[in-house]
């Protein structure tokens, strides 16, 4: 008896509830928020100050990237006589990166330093997601070929002495809307070393981060640990770990960064083994980078509802 009455009252309540449902609660029952979405734009650019980030080009996007390093601000080579390094340009980089898919980017570039040509491949292996994956992983490989003439006959006996390969696993995590961090264990494989005792396989670990202060304005910094990772520390030439810090401004399509760093060189194959300047003795310098994106093959999009037309 009692059970029946209990059941009845529940049924009555239920049916009453159906009457009372208003638009808002009905709407909430209809909308199923999509969970575990991929986390976009860990970084705004393919580069922090010196290091590559996990970001790749979107499919059919072509990025034009220019990097520039000025001379030493202080010390023996800087000061007023070079207008704090602005007269000099130890390295200038011009490169094109193209997104074959949203995950795979291939690129080509040329550095002023050693007239180096480089070919790069970036593959986005793991994408950070809201609940399941706390980090992203992008694999990065870059082959550089020194194209300048040899200073002497012994310098480059064959092509392999001109070539170096940089392989890196770039782990990143967008901790919050404003903070993204990066750690990239890497190895540089090379034939040519300044001294026989120097490592041909040079291990390094990059650390980097972006702190977004405003919607389009961020602080960026990175540090690459090279010295102290098995490289002899009593070489004839004193090398330093590259450290860079700067600001990044994004204006929809362009990303502009202005920064300071002790490495005069731009691509990993050059700055990881060759940084001989230190922040301490005036070896720090200005640098900037500009990237611009172009969308190719726009006409292939057949869906008229989302077509973008550029006049």
């Amino acid at each position: 008896m009692k059970q029946y009455y209990f059941l009845l009252s529940i049924l009555t309540l239920l049916s009453f509830g159906a009457y009372c449902q208003d638009a808002d609660s009905l709407l909430n029952s209809l909308s199923t928020p999509e969970k575990n979405q991929p986390i976009q734009s860990t970084f705004k650019s393919t580069h922090l100050v010196l290091l590559n980030t996990n970001e790749t080009q979107k499919k059919n996007d072509l990025a034009f990237w220019i990097g520039h390093r000025f001379g030493d601000i202080g010390g023996q080579f800087g000061g007023a006589k070079t207008l704090f390094g602005l007269d000099l340009a130890p390295d200038v980089y011009i490169g094109f990166d193209y997104g074959f898919t949203d995950k795979l980017t291939l690129g080509i570039g040329r550095s002023k330093f050693d007239a180096t040509y480089n070919f790069l491949a970036k593959y986005r292996l793991i994408q950070q997601k809201e609940s399941s994956t706390p980090f992203s992983l992008t694999l990065f490989g870059q082959t550089a070929i020194v194209s300048r003439e040899a200073f002497n006959d012994a310098e480059f006996p064959n092509l392999s002495n001109r070539t170096s390969h940089f392989l890196s696993s770039i782990f990143t995590s967008k901790i919050s809307q404003s903070l993204s961090l990066l750690i990239s264990p890497s190895v540089l494989l090379r034939e040519k070393v300044t001294e026989a005792r120097d490592s041909k396989s040079l291990f390094s670990v990059g650390f980097g981060g972006r702190l977004k202060l405003y919607k389009r304005f961020s602080l960026i910094a990175d540090y690459t640990l090279v010295e102290g990772l098995g490289r002899p520390n009593d070489l004839g030439t004193q090398f330093y770990n590259p450290l860079g810090a700067g600001i990044e401004i994004e204006t929809g399509g362009h990303v502009f960064s202005m920064n300071f760093q002790n490495s005069p060189y731009i691509i990993e194959n050059n700055f990881i083994p060759n940084t001989q300047k230190s922040w301490r003795d005036g070896g720090v310098r200005w640098g900037f980078a500009i990237s611009r994106n172009f969308a190719l093959f726009q006409k292939k999009n057949k869906n008229k509802d989302i077509q973008t037309k550029i006049y």
């Binding site: 928020p33 999509e34 979405q37 979107k58 996007d61 726009q298 973008t308």
Partner: peptide, 11 residues
């Protein structure tokens, strides 16, 4: 949902 708006360019 704002994220459900699809553009021709993902950038």
């Amino acid at each position: 949902p704002i994220k459900s708006l699809v553009f021709s360019r993902s950038l």
